[in-house]
């Protein structure tokens, strides 16, 4: 927390000649802080918070893209949603693609951060190379990977798996092959970004802990397990929360991978955000799409609470680890 600037009192004490600052400060000055924050809150309220509230309202109405007035339906949109096979399919695909991309992505990031944490030549080059995928737009990344994971036998991915003796794969047609390819794109895009976050976390672990561990005879690997990982716990939690939320929002990669909101002929890789998009803008049912958004919101909040809840539990188990920075540990 920052220390507030308490200019008034000190100024009044040191300068008796000038009029009291409290009086000198006009009304306008005292309301200035609100002036500084109001553009943010106005814009954010209008285009960030209001749409969320509006989503809830819309989810109780039948409202068509083409126009017409909203008609109150009560819970009917939700009843429809929970009876929709496509919804469960999309939910399940979101989960599997989420797992396929989040877990490897974070493990790779951790390994990369560990390597980056050594002192080395070309340090900045390697660090900047980590954000190249992040700087590449998802559209570009997906289109490039789409051509690599081409269904034709001459596509790069098929040629590569051919080197180890596998037959060419029709990537977009199979469920798992498509989900794998999408997970590769997601992992490629985010692994380096997360590695930098882990690196920052690692650098805030006091060096003394490593020295103490080394004196006690802990090997590199044991130091990683017993010093680095516990010290990184808050950072790891942070990345898990951010990437699971990101996984529920996945859209661009599967959408452009198969070129459409359907997610393959059988919806093999249609995820929840694509389903919401399809219901809203292909089928024109904005009320129903809003119900999907609300379910998604509940899912996000549940994930965040679950993750923080788990973290609290673990923190309580190991009170020492929660303040690795505290002077004498």
């Amino acid at each position: 927390m920052s220390v507030d600037a308490p200019p008034d009192r000190e100024a009044a004490g040191s300068r008796t000649t000038s009029p009291g600052p409290r009086q000198r400060r006009s009304l306008a000055e005292r309301f200035a802080p609100y002036g500084y924050i109001s553009p943010f809150f106005l814009l954010f309220g209008a285009f960030g918070l209001f749409p969320l509230a509006f989503t809830l309202w819309l989810s109780f109405f039948e409202f068509r893209l083409g126009g017409g007035d909203p008609q109150f339906l009560g819970l009917e949109n939700y009843v429809w949603l929970f009876g929709s096979d496509a919804f469960y399919n999309a939910l399940l695909n979101t989960l599997t693609i989420g797992l396929l991309s989040t877990v490897p992505q974070l493990c790779i990031a951790l390994a990369l951060a560990h390597q980056l944490n050594y002192s080395m030549r070309l340090r900045n080059f390697f660090r900047v190379s980590m954000i190249i995928p992040y700087a590449t737009s998802l559209v570009a990344a997906t289109l490039v990977f789409g051509s690599i994971f081409s269904n034709s036998a001459g596509g790069l991915a098929n040629v590569l798996i051919g080197l180890v003796g596998l037959d060419p794969v029709s990537w977009t047609n199979g469920k798992w092959t498509a989900q794998f390819a999408i997970a590769v794109i997601v992992t490629w895009h985010w692994a380096g970004y997360n590695a930098l976050i882990y690196l920052a976390g690692m650098q805030s672990i006091p060096q003394d802990l490593y020295e103490a561990a080394a004196i006690d005879g802990a090997s590199r690997w044991h130091q990683f397990l017993h010093v680095t990982l516990p010290g990184l716990r808050p950072t790891i939690l942070f990345t898990i929360v951010v990437s699971t939320i990101g996984a529920t929002q996945l859209f661009t990669e599967p959408f452009l991978f198969g070129n459409g909101a359907g997610g393959g002929a059988l919806g093999q890789y249609q995820v929840i955000a694509m389903y919401m998009y399809e219901v809203a803008f292909t089928f024109g049912r904005l009320g129903r799409a809003s119900a999907i958004a609300m379910v998604l919101l509940v899912l996000v909040i549940a994930l965040v609470l679950l993750n923080t809840g788990l973290a609290r539990l673990k923190m309580r188990d190991r009170p020492i680890r929660t303040t690795p920075s505290g002077g004498a540990r």
């Binding site: 960030g48 209001f50 749409p51 969320l52 509006f54 989503t55 819309l58 929360v241 939320i245 990101g246 529920t248 929002q249 859209f251 955000a273 919401m276 998009y277 809203a280 904005l286 799409a289 809003s290 958004a293 998604l296 919101l297 996000v300 965040v304």
Partner: peptide, 10 residues
């Protein structure tokens, strides 16, 4: 923590 994707319909 609230992703903007949720608000696109409204």
């Amino acid at each position: 923590t609230i992703p903007p994707t949720l608000g696109i319909v409204p």
